[in-house]
Simulated scan of single mutants.
Amino acid sequence: MSERARRRDPHLAVKREVLVRYLDAWTPVALRSQRGATYVESGAAEFVVDAFRVFGESADRMDDGHHLDMVLVGPAVELGERPEGLTVRTLTDPADLKVTGPVLAHLDAVAEADAWRLVDQLGKGKGREVLLSLPAVEQADEYRDHLHSKGLTCTVAVELVDDDGHAELLLFATGDSKHLAIFKNELWAADEFAGIRYRDPHDTEHALVDISLTPQLLPLRRVLLAELTRRGPTTVADLQQHTLMETIYRPADAVNALTSAAAKGAITKEPEKGRLTPKTIVSAA
């Protein structure tokens, strides 16, 4: 399929890019496991081909017992020559999924009930991660609660909204806050001209934000000011952690949003002079 044809579906274009970017970061780490790693793919053939290409680029890491199992949920996809250490198999029944070691499951274009059955099959082992695409934006909190119950306590939910206002929900869940931070970095590094803007399901103003390495921070500033009002004086580090765990933004974005709020007199800081640091204590003005 040509690049021009793919651009007709901006949701697909952004989801593909975010997946590839995260796979580039996830694969070398997952392959360190002596138990092997597993990648589960339930989406369109484009996702399968993209993932297979990324894994091929890591072929030199698949030796001395380090291997990767690529599990396709649904029909088989024609692929090229497989590097040694990479196995590809198909799965028709999610109940048959058995995994060990680090796992990343990308669940797209699969029935919602099957998606959650696959999540349940992953269990609560260390290194389990899920990237889901779901249509029901209004159920984002319910989805997050279910993922938390499976031990995937570090989550981000972001709405992908096209120029016509059509939204899809993208959910990433992991048990590792460092991996959540990595995913968010890749999320904001996606193509800003793809025809998609982001929206935080928790934003009361439902603001649409352009994809950018330096995104518009007004929605985050609202969240942080509300959190300061709720908590009282707190450190910048605590608000960075809140940003990571509860918003679509990155910890570094919290510093920029708080710096802007301080310049506008919306917050006070201690010490009063100097730049914000993680130890700086801030309060709502």
Rank of each mutant, 00 (worst) to 15 (best):
V137S: 05
A111E: 15
S2V: 02
M62H: 05
D145Y: 12
P94E: 05
L132D: 02
T87Y: 10
P278F: 01
R221P: 00
G165Q: 06
A111R: 15
S149H: 13
E159T: 04
R221D: 01
T38F: 00
W26E: 03
A105D: 13
A189S: 13
D9E: 06
T174R: 02
L79G: 10
W26I: 06
L19V: 14
K15D: 13
D203Q: 07
H206D: 15
R35T: 11
V223D: 09
V29A: 14
D210M: 08
G74C: 11
A257C: 08
A51F: 02
R199L: 07
P278E: 00
L239S: 00
L152A: 10
P215D: 02
P201D: 05
G56P: 10
G101T: 09
L91F: 01
D191L: 03
F183K: 04
V223F: 10
G265Q: 11
K264C: 10
K178A: 15
A181V: 11
W26N: 03
S283H: 05
Q34Y: 12
V158I: 09
E3L: 10
D63M: 12
R21I: 04
D210N: 06
L224C: 00
D96V: 02
G85T: 03
G265R: 08
D64W: 11
L91A: 04
Q139G: 07
L217V: 02
D69Q: 15
T174D: 06
D163R: 12
L72A: 10
L134T: 07
S42Y: 01
L213N: 10
V130N: 00
N185W: 09
S133G: 09
T155D: 08
V103I: 11
I267H: 07
E41A: 07
C154F: 14
E129T: 03
T27V: 15
E81F: 13
L31C: 05
G65D: 09
R82D: 07
H146Q: 15
K98I: 13
A263I: 12
L180T: 02
Q240S: 07
S283E: 03
H166A: 12
Y22M: 07
A45G: 08
A140R: 10
K150S: 13
L72P: 04
V88G: 03
Q34K: 14
R275T: 08
R221Q: 11
P83A: 01
E3G: 03
